[in-house]
Design a protein around this nucleic acid. Structure first.
Lengths: 309, 309
DNA sequence: TTGTTCATTTGTCGTGGACAGTATTGGGTT
DNA sequence: AACCCAATACTGTCCACGACAAATGAACAA
């Protein structure tokens, strides 16, 4: 069982065990226990077996903390502040820098939950700009704004989920419709376990499609060993991995090195995304792509190198 | 760091720490440690700080064990068998029951990694059958076969990933193209944290679209509290949750009850999917849907009930 | 600015004991 | 035999708390 009903006074209150809190906050059980030991928060009730029972207010404060820590605050400095102080910290974040008006229009539609017109606006931008510019300009800007706004608490998680679904719909549709896909190089595209963001992958797939490369998209969270096995099965030249800012740079580099150790030298490995944007140098045998232009150059380079033979 | 290079004899060998093994096998750190304590497997090397270093063969055996346990074997009975015995156990599973020839054709294309023609076959089936029949017949059958074949080791994980991506492409495309979406009831569609399977959600969305209901799809893994907040924001009448066979029935029922406790009585909650197919009775205030036909009746019933007013 | 060193903070890993929840088994009853 | 319920065995999760690696921030030199 994941939760219990406990009656306190006259109002029934839902309680969460440690596994449910881990699931809903993303904080590991170890972390939850060590915070309690060190900082005295959270201080859950215990059931008759001395197991932790977290209250809803505790869970909500933990979610605020998680948000602030992701943004760069240190746990020890903020963990014992009140909920209202934390809320203030979140809303006192710098307001969004100037956004282009056409982006602002879409954001307003999303915030007003006007699903239909948001979709139409995306579709129109795609038509007007073409796939490549749509991805590198509009979607990039929207992603950036939504990420910022989410950190600042101006956008709810469900809005972000909905945004993600609609951009996926538009991109998948456009990728299919792209003419002239399927020539060399053949690229296997996926992310490692823990990396759940799909939009980055679809943006890469769109750029590959626009450049006429063949893309085998495996979706998110493919274990390294399975990538190793997929490379000969689909006869790909390149493995491209995407890392959003949600993973740490060291985890991304470690994953890339692990894969490098398993793949034959003939297969190239490309890595890109927010987590690697500030990486100094690539591990041996890995190509870091810091922008979509980098990727287009890399495709061009690959074609030149492999045309000589 | 997630892995280390350790030289044993003349061949360098990649070693995995316990976090990497948890990530790649899905077995929790607690489980890995307790198996070592009780059964003596896995018995990883230790680094200079006494931390576990798992070898690649250990990791691969753990993945086999995970597969067999998911299929119903008991850990204690199989954990000390050799890899070849385990492989044999997997392949000795009952072969697939008779599949319709048109399904078999698609499966062959997938196994041959003929991506382009697999996509075309799906698209043709959709055109021939229409969205509703395509979902309830073809995709259901394909899902079932792929799941079986994966358990039996006839299909690699990356094949399953690729299958999922392509069915998603086709379904999303078809849902957008469906005419006459957007009338009542308004349904919020998502899954709870831990449930990553998207195809089931898209199948539901397709049926809703075919029935002319308005669907707000939030993708997978929305925490319960966020669902609660999304219901008034998007003014939905019904929350529909999908649970694949990968989650246990008790976890699914607990999640549904938790949500029921947070939502106002006016909002209906529907639950469906593999995990709930064998559930005896629904918790108070939850509607269990055991088939797509159940769902179509439920939509009809909702419309009748709300037309009287 | 950019790098290097050192101190502090923070999350993960270790051990083993306990026990909840689930599956299986065994003994009755239809 | 087929069914049901209680006793038993199995299995994963939870607990405490010590240790320390990795990440971060501060102080300082180039």
């Amino acid at each position: 069982m994941n939760n219990y009903l406990v009656t306190v006074g006259t109002t029934p209150d839902v309680c969460y065990n440690i596994a449910a809190v881990e699931r809903d906050t993303g904080l590991s059980k170890d972390t939850l226990r060590v915070w309690e030991r060190r900082y005295g928060f959270p201080k859950p009730l215990r059931d008759r077996h001395d197991e932790r029972l977290y209250s809803l207010p505790e869970l909500e404060k933990l979610r605020l903390l998680r948000l602030l820590i992701d943004y760069g605050h240190r746990p020890g400095k903020i963990i014992n502040r009140s909920v209202s102080e934390l809320t203030q910290l979140i809303s006192s974040r710098a307001p969004a820098q100037d956004t282009p008006p056409e982006i602002q229009v879409m954001i307003d539609l999303l915030l007003r939950h006007d699903v239909e017109n948001f979709r139409n606006a995306l579709q129109q931008a795609l038509m007007k700009q073409g796939l490549l510019r749509f991805v590198t300009e509009t979607v990039t800007a929207l992603n950036h704004w939504i990420g910022e706004a989410w950190l600042a608490g101006r956008v709810a998680i469900f809005d972000e989920h909905l945004y993600s679904e609609h951009v996926q719909n538009i991109l998948r549709n456009a990728i299919i419709a792209q003419p002239g896909r399927g020539s060399a190089p053949r690229v296997l595209l996926t992310s490692l376990p823990g990396e759940k963001h799909r939009i980055g992958l679809l943006m890469v797939e769109a750029v590959l499609a626009a450049e006429g490369a063949a893309c085998v998209a495996l979706g998110t969270e493919t274990p390294v060993i399975d990538i190793k096995n997929a490379v000969p099965a689909y006869e790909v030249d390149i493995v491209a991995l995407s890392f959003s800012s949600a993973v740490t740079q060291s985890a991304a580099l470690a994953g890339l090195s692990e894969l490098r150790g398993l793949l034959p030298d003939g297969a190239e490995i490309w890595g890109g995304g927010g987590a690697l944007a500030r990486a100094r140098k690539a591990p041996e045998g890995i190509l870091l792509l810091r922008s979509f232009d980098d990727m287009r150059y890399a495709i061009e380079r690959w074609r030149v190198e492999h045309a000589r033979r």
